[in-house]
Design a protein around this nucleic acid. Structure first.
Length: 363
DNA sequence: AATTCGTGGCG
DNA sequence: TCGCCAAGAAT
């Protein structure tokens, strides 16, 4: 009822009126997303949590199919908490940032064991769970439990730094942005306020070429007045990582492929890979890396023409691919195993490994 | 506090 | 093409 009244209120005080204008815009233009409740209804905490974890540094488009798959297989936190970690990793394969999958499972187990299968309904309670940081705790508290708090993600950072023309650079400016973002909270509907800012950032206040003419806050946007919207938020320059090179071995035994699991910590933690060399920077002759002690028994290798290129967040990678075919009943080296090529889709391969295998097997 | 975590799409 | 960016967290 408050939103209806606010929509008809004359914006005499622009500053004070922002929360209401934001919600009025949201009520007309909110995106329909799989994890979002029908307008006016409270969202399911499990769906909010699952989507928020998946959406960390990941686009709505990429998350969509994964969210649907997860909810279909594990409809509630209890089901997910009882699932095998390997199954969760396999379902997560391809989405990236794999520690999220590990923490997702750990969080479900914690909710099940320590909270009776019910999510904590406070920001602090949520913040204590694995994989839930400051943003996600605030987002779930606001969206699923209507707590009056403002989560600040990349979208909201952009909207707020433009609205107030905040000159301080990220990440140092985070506390200030958090403070200013909170001014956009009205007396109620905190979750909708947050989602409104996210939708605004995603559809109107975009990084490039923002559609300011359509923005409900354009009247008093400081950056727009100055005409340099696109320069916000200010960011400290980030250094790009050096190219690394390595070799990967695609070894087949009939219709089977030789694989192993990566260590649980670190890059691609816990995911499946084909054996390979280390990935090193400043390696002039990548062929020198094509020595794998465990695979010395293989009679003849074939250097596959071409290179598999991949770009991680902090470094680009080039892999040479070597293939070999070994006789039936050849034992897998220590720590490795054979998996049927026919079921590779169900394995926990990160995308870089899917590229390698596709290259080596001519898939 | 600065790094380390994937992947895909976009201009 | 290639750097930027996406509902950040853990260390």
């Amino acid at each position: 009822m408050s939103s209806r009244a606010a929509a008809k209120t004359k914006p005499t005080d622009q500053q004070a009126d922002r929360p209401a204008r934001l919600l009025a815009w949201y009520d007309r233009h909110r995106r329909k997303l799989p994890w979002r409740a029908v307008a006016g209804e409270r969202a399911d905490p499990y769906c909010v949590w699952l989507s928020e974890i998946m959406l960390q540094q990941t686009t709505v488009r990429a998350v969509g199919p994964y969210f649907e798959k997860f909810v279909a297989r594990w409809p509630d936190v209890t089901a997910l908490g009882r699932a095998a970690l390997d199954d969760v990793l396999r379902m997560w394969a391809g989405l990236g940032y794999y520690s999220r999958a590990r923490n997702l499972h750990a969080c479900a187990v914690a909710v099940l064991n320590d909270h009776g299968g019910v999510f904590p309904n406070t920001e602090d309670g949520l913040r204590a769970l694995p994989g839930i940081g400051p943003y996600t705790a605030a987002a779930i508290a606001a969206i699923a439990f209507d707590r009056r708090t403002m989560p600040v993600d990349g979208n909201i950072e952009r909207v707020v730094t433009r609205l107030y023309a905040i000159e301080a650079a990220l990440p140092q400016a985070k506390p200030l942005i958090q403070e200013m973002a909170a001014t956009l909270l009205g007396p109620s509907r905190a979750g909708d306020s947050a989602q409104a800012l996210m939708d605004l950032g995603a559809t109107i206040c975009t990084p490039k070429k923002p559609a300011c003419a359509l923005c409900p806050l354009n009247d008093d946007c400081a950056a727009r007045v100055r005409g340099d919207q696109e320069t916000f938020p200010r960011k400290a320059p980030k250094k790009s990582g050096a190219l690394r090179r390595g070799a990967a071995f695609v070894v087949t035994r009939g219709g089977e492929l030789l694989v192993r699991s990566r260590p649980e910590k670190g890059l691609l933690g816990g995911m499946t890979e084909v054996p390979g060399s280390q990935w090193l920077a400043g390696q002039e002759d990548a062929a020198a890396l094509a020595q794998a002690p465990e695979l010395k028994g293989v009679a003849r290798w074939h250097r596959k023409a071409g290179i598999v290129s991949h770009v991680f967040t902090h470094f680009p990678l080039e892999l040479m691919v070597y293939t070999a075919s070994v006789p039936p009943r050849t034992r897998a080296p220590e720590g490795m195993r054979w998996v049927p090529v026919a079921t590779l889709d169900g394995e926990a391969f990160p995308n870089v490994m899917r590229k390698v295998i596709a290259h080596g097997l001519d898939l």
